[in-house]
Structures are given as structure tokens and as C-alpha cells.
Nucleic acid binder design. Structure first.
Lengths: 126, 126, 126, 126
DNA sequence: GTGGTCTAGACCACG
DNA sequence: GTGGTCTAGACCACA
């Protein structure tokens, strides 16, 4: 498992790590039963404080992906996929619309954005 | 032009207003030359402090959408699209990826997400 | 409103502050609508870091006592008293039994403990 | 003597074991002279690592309840009740107050709480 | 060895 | 002015 974090990015390291973990979890490269590296080890590898990693683990655990208990290493657990609520979908659509507005506001062209979206859509197909 | 803000929401009012403006600007319901309501009037309508609206106007203006000068009403301007910085693009891609992971974590199926993305991409083409 | 915290105590300041707030809230000296002092002001008064107070506020707010929103001062809110669940009562009884065992283990005499308990019971009557 | 520990509980095993022992010791079901099961045996029964049991024994022993020596089984001893330190008493009073606030916050009525306290006080008298 | 807590300081966002 | 976030370091608790 390899995680990339960019310490110079304006996106906080905690969020980057949590997000990278979610990607692995969602995509199946981290399966139930797998043990994550210890917070301290991963922190050293990434060049961040161990609390930064610990917080990321906690966030992901609070979403039901990890069993995180004192003294034991963090373990991926079987996770009952919740049924998506309609309200959630509407909210996500709204957030997507806002994200696109922001991109256009920052000067990214419509065609470039459309290309990005299609690119992600393709990735999901596989 | 109608803006919806929910004062009880945990999303801060400033951001809600700025987002709503951006959506209108980007989607064309606010065209160059259009005049926005005065800060105080809009504030009264929305039930927020006028500074809150002023801050939202300033944010949107700083992105090049508005001509904001003392004594005149805020006017939408034809804006030279700023060159998107590479770092920005990377950040937006990251945020998009994150949004998608969250949707999947919430139980939205891959195909459903892909469909949403393509749908937005189509809208942008036109 | 006066809060006492003992920085030399082994009990963490955050917990002491949260607890002191709870006592005021439960006993009615902080009523719905009342505004708490700002985290920074209270922190200065108590001689702790403002984050310590902020965390205490957050804990109490998460129990439904406070309206805690960015930029506004913390306000006591009307709180629907939840119906006590039976399981809760059993748990509290267990915790009380454990607390008493610990006191006896530390050398506090039975009669002294009984006296304490009766003393608290009296306070509650009024 | 039977101890219940719940390995799935968020309460750590060590604490659960130590608490359970204290309750037995204080309430008299473990009297001076009684021998506790060996660390390994109890650990096996409870399904925990023997170090976990050993740590619990050590904690209880450090409070003067047990004679814990290499090669002999842990034995309950007649203990000279240690003099309670004033600071301890204050801390316990604080914890009791905290427990009561929590009960009230959870919706348990004052009179119900007072009744519980008096009930425990009576038990101690005998 | 593991993860967790508490405190702290620099900086940010909101009104 | 308000509260909040992020990172950090010393120390603690658990297995």
C-alpha cells in the first residue's frame, strides 16, 4: 500500500491521508482483515507527526472502515455498505455543482472540466 | 435572481452566498452588465448582517466576476478568464476524487456516480 | 458564573471545566439564552490555553446544552431532557459501585463514604 | 469467584478485570487468605493475554490487597488500610459529582438519584 | 510494541 | 470580536 501526500499542498495532511486510505478501501486494495501500518511507522514514512496519521485513522474508523483499539494495530473490518439515502444524493449533486463553479471561477475552461469529469467516469467503469 | 441560504445550516452564511452567486454567474443567469442588489438590501432579504453579504461579494469580486466600487452597485463584468494555475487544477482533481470516494462510502454505486459525472460533463459542453 | 479548576490536580483541565459547566447547567444557574464567556476570556481567567476551554465547550455542546457556532458566542439552548433508558441506569449503578470500591481500596472508610453519599443525596433533595 | 469481561467493550480488559477484583475484595467475597487463580489460568478462562491479567493483579496488589510473589499464587492479605490522602478524597468527591451530573443530563430525576445514593450508603453501613 | 490524551501555538474562518 | 483547524510534543494506557 502506498500513499502519496504533498506536504506543500494547501490541503491538510490529515485529510490527504484519510482520503488516500478511503480510496484504497473503496477500491479494494485494502480488504477486511488487513492490518494498517502503525501510526508511528506510517508517520515516519510520510514525514508527518504521528498524531496527524492517528487523526486520519480515527476519521476513517469513524466511518466504519477500521477497528481501532488501544494497543492493537488498526485493522480493516467488514463494512455493511449503507443504503444511499436520497437526500445524500441530492447533496452530493449540489456539492459537485459547486465544485464545478469554483473551477470555472478559477479559470479552468468548460471543456477542460468536462474532460476531467469524463476521465473520472471512465475510471469508475472498470 | 434568488439565493437560498439556510441560517441554521452548519455551512457558514458567507460561503453559502458566495457559492450561490458563483453558480448563477457560471451558469449564465447573471450576465455581464447585470447589477447585483445592494449589500444592505440583500442582507435584509436573507436575514444576515450586511458584512456577511459584503464579504461574499468581495470573495466573488476577487475572482474577477464583479466590479465593486464605492457608491455604485456591484456590477457583473465581462471577465478575462484568469489562467488556471497548475496547483489549483491538481487540488480540484483531488477534491473531485475525494467527493467520489465519499459517495461510494455512502453506498452510491459506481455506475450511478459515473452517470452523474457524464451528465454534468454534457451540460458543460453546451 | 464562577468555575473552579485546579491546575495541579491530576484531573485534566478540560474535564474539570466541562464538568463545572455541566453542574451549572444542570442546577439551573445557566439557563437557556445565557451566553457563555468567550473561550479566550475564560481561558485567561482560568489560566489555561484557549483550546482547553474550547474543547470543554465542544464536549458540553455535543451533549446538547450549547449552540456553538463559528463567530457567535456560545449560547445555552433549551434542551429536551431525554428519557432515561433502563440500560443507562444499570450502567450508572455499576459505575457507582466501582467508584465506591476504588474509594475503599484507597483507604477511605466505609462510614466516611456513606456519609459522602448521604451528603450528596441531601443536596439533590433541595 | 467469577469475573465478567467483555472483550468487545471499549473499556479495556485490564481495567475491567481490576474493577471486578476490587468489587469482590471490597464486598467480601474474596477474604484474606484466599488464593487467586494463576495469571495464566485466569487469562485463558477470560480469553486475554496473560500480561493483561498480570497487570490487573499488579494494580490491585499495589493498593495493598494482594501478596504477589514469584512462584506463589496471589493471595489476598489482611491489609492495613492505607491512610486516604486528602487530595484523593477531593478527587473522588469530584468524580461522584461528575457521575451525578451525567445521570441528570441523561434524564434521571433528582429524587431517583438521591434514592440510589442512599441505597448504597445503607449497604455500606452493614 | 500498539493507539490515545492532553495541552499548546500558529493560523484560519466567520460575523 | 467570535469559534475552529491543523500540527505538534510530552506523556499515558493497553496488550
Amino acid at each position: 500500500m502506498k500513499l502519496r501526500v504533498d506536504l506543500n499542498s494547501s490541503i491538510p495532511a490529515t485529510r490527504q491521508i484519510a482520503e488516500a486510505l478511503r480510496v484504497h478501501l473503496v477500491e479494494g486494495s485494502l480488504r477486511p482483515g488487513a492490518k494498517l501500518p502503525s501510526v508511528r511507522r506510517l508517520a515516519m514514512e510520510l514525514g508527518v507527526h504521528f498524531n496527524t496519521v492517528a487523526e486520519a485513522y480515527r476519521q476513517v474508523a469513524s466511518e466504519g472502515w477500521l477497528d481501532l483499539r488501544h494497543g492493537r494495530s488498526a485493522t480493516v473490518i467488514e463494512r455493511a455498505a449503507p443504503a444511499p439515502r436520497k437526500a445524500d444524493l441530492a447533496e452530493y449533486r449540489q456539492r459537485l455543482r459547486e465544485l464545478i463553479s469554483q473551477m470555472r471561477a478559477k479559470g479552468v475552461s468548460q471543456s477542460k472540466i468536462a474532460e476531467e469529469l469524463r476521465c473520472f467516469a471512465e475510471e469508475l467503469k472498470s
